[in-house]
Write a protein that binds this DNA or RNA. Structure first.
Lengths: 116, 116
DNA sequence: ATACTATATAACTATATAGTTGATTAGTAG
DNA sequence: CTACTAATCAACTATATAGTTATATAGTAT
């Protein structure tokens, strides 16, 4: 069972940091690119249509948060998802967003039904 | 099984918004205050030692994101957690942070052991 | 050594937002 | 009505950070 005793603020700060790292669409795109397998910085940049420096910075943040790992390979650096938490969190929220949209669509269908 | 087909960017933006809302320590404190039951704005403000206007703004954001619900009661407004997702996400990340800290503590113990 | 490539970093701009303060709105009590 | 209270909102400040550009670093090849 989950432990829901109140967390001290210092811990809440760390929890918030975890969420915050995932709270950027570009970083989610980057993680999504990594979900199909390890990728170099350039590969991720091409895959996501973003600047190389930008992707490098985002990957640095993700690595600091322990969500991805770096392994140099020659002049390249291969990143991969390092924490299963990423999958579990994204699955959960993606599912929720999908559900919300499905409900919105259904609501619109009902409105259209009534009005015509 | 989780559906991990790549999401279009517009959906990623929504997913990111969900995470971003949770990515602030003050909002996590506020949610934590609500986890023990419905509370008015003032109660939450006292409970978290934050300014009333500040808490009101945070609660507004949380309500916009569908995470809490508002029910006016006289001059007061009672907020409560409206989405089970909040519990599931926080449980997951809190657990992860606890584990990380436990591992850090254990690592320190090992270092101390070796050094004398 | 030079040339080339991949990544990281520094400097900068622009934007978003957390928090404060003060005003405003809305309900209640006299 | 006035007085009071609770919540929201508006305006502002300060800070954080996403993205860009240019530069630096590091490995490889010739």
């Amino acid at each position: 069972m989950p432990n829901r005793s109140p967390l001290p603020v210092e811990l809440l700060v760390r929890v918030a940091q975890t969420f915050r790292v995932l709270g950027d669409p570009s970083r989610l795109q980057i993680l999504q690119a990594l979900m199909s397998g390890p990728r170099t910085v350039n590969e991720v940049a091409e895959n996501t249509n973003k600047g190389q420096a930008n992707v490098s910075k985002h990957l640095g943040l993700l690595a600091d948060a322990g969500m991805v790992s770096r392994t140099p390979r020659g002049t390249q650096v291969v990143y991969r998802i390092a924490d299963r938490l990423v999958y579990r969190l994204c699955d959960m929220v993606c599912g929720s967003v999908r559900d919300q949209l499905a409900k919105q669509v259904e609501a619109h269908r009902q409105i259209l039904k009534k009005s015509g």
